[in-house]
């Protein structure tokens, strides 16, 4: 219900059309976006907002963006960002809740890309004494070379084996090549490699090969990853709001930030199947049974 209530509450508390200073373009029906909007609403003070749901039609967005008093635009998600980019606005724009920001544009952004170092630190807390990580890298999407990934991992005290995989057809082979050589497989968000079609054979390969997967979403953990590390979406919304306030005050010229707070989840069932003894004590971990 969050994805229904949050935008409604924000809309109720915002100024009526024509007087908005910040336009927020979003896509309804996605719970994560609604959580981010909740965080945004909680952090924003007296600034005015105009919420525009993409499902309401592009005319609505055009009208909102064309208002004279618009000082800032926040695009929630890459679809909203694409819509905003296509209109070539002159006001500052923040892209939030995106995996990667706009191309070729000087957008400020709060993206969902959790730095490798943070993920490895989280794994060190959750599963101590297991230092060998495997990573499947999609060369078409990855921003970093294999060498750069290995170097960052070494700084955290991990050894990383990076296997390139450019499509779902090679995914199981890539997983098989890591079996026995790493303690866990870290999965980065990639819709080509990890989707409802590929997930079942991937999980089966993980269970059969006794190779725990560390996923990137609660759904992935529920599906069968042993653990998951993902951004706190509410906090991402707050982070976006703070960036917006700094931009409006002229204190910030924009730039990119990653999520500053992460959440973790465990699949107890899968952990028991694999014989993995996690140590969630004292950590903000959600356990799925």
């Amino acid at each position: 219900m969050t994805w229904v209530l949050a935008p409604v509450l924000l809309a109720v508390t915002s100024m009526p059309p024509g007087k908005a200073a910040i336009v927020v373009a979003y896509e309804s029906g996605v719970d994560a976006y609604a959580q981010a909007l909740e965080g945004m609403g909680a952090a924003l003070g007296p600034n005015t907002l105009r919420m525009v749901d993409l499902h309401a039609g592009s005319d609505e967005l055009t009208r909102a963006l064309g208002a004279r008093d618009v000082q800032l635009v926040i695009a929630v998600g890459s679809r909203a960002l694409a819509e905003v980019q296509s209109r070539k606005l002159l006001v500052p724009t923040i892209a939030t809740m995106v995996l990667q920001g706009g191309e070729g544009e000087a957008f400020a952004q709060v993206d969902l890309d959790i730095p490798l170092s943070i993920q490895l630190q989280a794994m060190r807390s959750l599963w101590p004494n297991h230092w060998r990580a495997g990573i499947i890298r999609n060369p078409a999407r990855s921003r970093y070379s294999a060498e750069a990934i290995e170097s960052r991992a070494r700084k955290e005290g991990f050894t990383v084996l990076v296997v390139d995989c450019d499509g779902p057809a090679q995914l199981l082979k890539a997983v098989a090549s890591l079996k026995g050589k790493v303690d866990f497989l870290l999965c980065f968000p990639d819709p080509d490699l990890y989707n409802p079609v590929t997930i079942k054979p991937l999980i089966m390969a993980s269970l059969e090969g006794r190779l725990p997967l560390v996923g990137f979403s609660p759904a992935f953990v529920r599906a069968g990853a042993a653990a998951g590390i993902y951004p706190d979406y509410r906090e991402t919304g707050r982070q976006t709001a703070e960036m917006a306030q700094r931009l409006l005050r002229g204190e910030d010229r924009g730039g990119g930030e990653g999520p500053r707070k992460i959440r973790m989840a465990l699949n107890q069932r899968v952990a028991r199947l694999l014989g993995v003894e996690f140590h969630p004590e004292g950590l903000p971990v959600e356990v799925f049974r």
């Binding site: 809740m97 968000p189 989707n195 409802p196 990137f216 979403s217 069968g224």
Partner: peptide, 17 residues
């Protein structure tokens, strides 16, 4: 792209293992 983070995924039954 980021919907891969949010979308539901089918759970694998342990029984089939």
């Amino acid at each position: 792209d980021e919907t891969v983070l949010f979308g539901d995924l089918p759970a694998v039954e342990a029984a089939s293992l």
